[in-house]
């Protein structure tokens, strides 16, 4: 075996020695990085570059040679609005409805999800009975496919679904959960939290378990109340983990598409149309297929995401620096 390995190494020895002589020892690292860099270029940088190119062109053709250069027109069309708070005054009202929906979705989803995850992690961190079972129960929805999550909740919430059967059994009037805009939006946020909460709970639980026990023992000896212990010890020491959770939840929240699309199709009307669905429908499902507009919308979304992530990272560093 060793002999075989030595033989293989010898096969590479000659070309590597040759490359080292030509490039020098410092630049030889690029040779080793090349395979990864090529893959990265092909599957990450090139698509981003192409996306930018498409955003600067117009028409409904997919091949670049058939598309006209329109400069920043696609961005201008998307940004054309009298009042950004009222989508009806915007040229692309559906884009701005999607922006509003996504904004509210992120605020509510991240806020409630972190709150519930923290609460769950705190409970699961205590010495309760069947702790392992409950940890699995809360993590289980994370393992489900987004489409399965959407269908489960659709069956529960539809007109003749489980929820209305329950209300009916209690003698109450059924509620059209999936036909009222506000209710559908609420349930979209809810199912998203339900599906992802377990993942963030797990991270926060790891963060909680990393807090040294002796700090709590000292607080106990000082007769600190549970609330004071939580606000002065747990929360500050958990903050770096919380920031990681926030960044992850933000990125995941902005990218939300599949579960909400399968749940409500973006409706009723456009009540649950999120930005990624707008990009998908504009570029692929609609007619004509406006690849340029879809690319421009995705770039605007990416820029917002970069800014928000940057702000959070800055906050993390500031926090770490004390």
């Amino acid at each position: 075996m060793l002999g075989l390995l030595t033989s293989i190494m010898r096969v590479f020895e000659i070309p590597m020695a040759f490359l080292q002589r030509i490039l020098g020892i410092k630049h030889l690292a690029w040779v080793f990085l090349a395979p990864n860099l090529i893959l990265f270029f092909l599957f990450a940088f090139l698509p981003v570059f192409l996306n930018v190119v498409y955003a600067l062109t117009g028409g409904d053709q997919i091949l670049l040679r058939d598309r006209a250069f329109v400069g920043a027109d696609n961005f201008a069309v998307l940004a054309s609005c009298d009042n950004y708070l009222d989508p009806n005054t915007c040229q692309k009202d559906l884009f701005w409805r999607a922006v509003h929906n996504t904004g509210w979705f992120i605020v509510l989803q991240i806020g409630f999800m972190i709150g519930f995850s923290l609460l769950t992690a705190l409970v699961l961190n205590r010495d309760i009975r069947a702790r392992g079972f409950f940890r699995s129960v809360f993590f289980f929805p994370v393992l489900l496919s987004p489409v399965v999550v959407a269908l489960i909740w659709k069956w529960i919430l539809q007109r003749h679904g489980l929820m209305n059967a329950g209300l009916d059994a209690m003698g109450l009037e059924p509620v059209l959960w999936m036909l009222e805009r506000e209710w559908t939006f609420f349930w979209s946020v809810f199912l998203s939290i339900w599906a992802h909460m377990g993942f963030y709970t797990l991270i926060l639980l790891a963060g909680l378990q990393a807090i040294p026990r002796d700090v709590y023992e000292a607080a106990l000896m000082d007769a600190a109340t549970p609330f004071r212990t939580f606000s002065r010890i747990t929360l500050p020491l958990l903050m770096p983990t919380m920031l990681v959770v926030m960044v992850l939840a933000l990125i995941k929240g902005v990218q939300t598409f599949d579960e909400v699309y399968a749940f409500s199709g973006g409706g009723p009307g456009s009540a649950t149309t999120l930005l990624i669905q707008y990009v998908y429908e504009t570029g692929f499902a609609g007619a004509p297929r406006l690849f340029g507009l879809a690319s421009a919308a995705s770039i605007m979304l990416a820029l917002v995401l970069v800014v928000l992530t940057g702000l959070q990272l800055w906050a993390t560093r500031k926090n770490a620096d004390g």
């Binding site: 539809q158 007109r159 999936m178 036909l179 409500s264 199709g265 973006g266 409706g267 009723p268 009307g269 456009s270 009540a271 649950t272 149309t273 669905q277 429908e281 499902a285 609609g286």
Partner: peptide, 10 residues
């Protein structure tokens, strides 16, 4: 439920 229960071009 049919026209009012969905969105987009679905």
């Amino acid at each position: 439920d049919v026209w009012g229960g969905s969105g987009g071009s679905s």
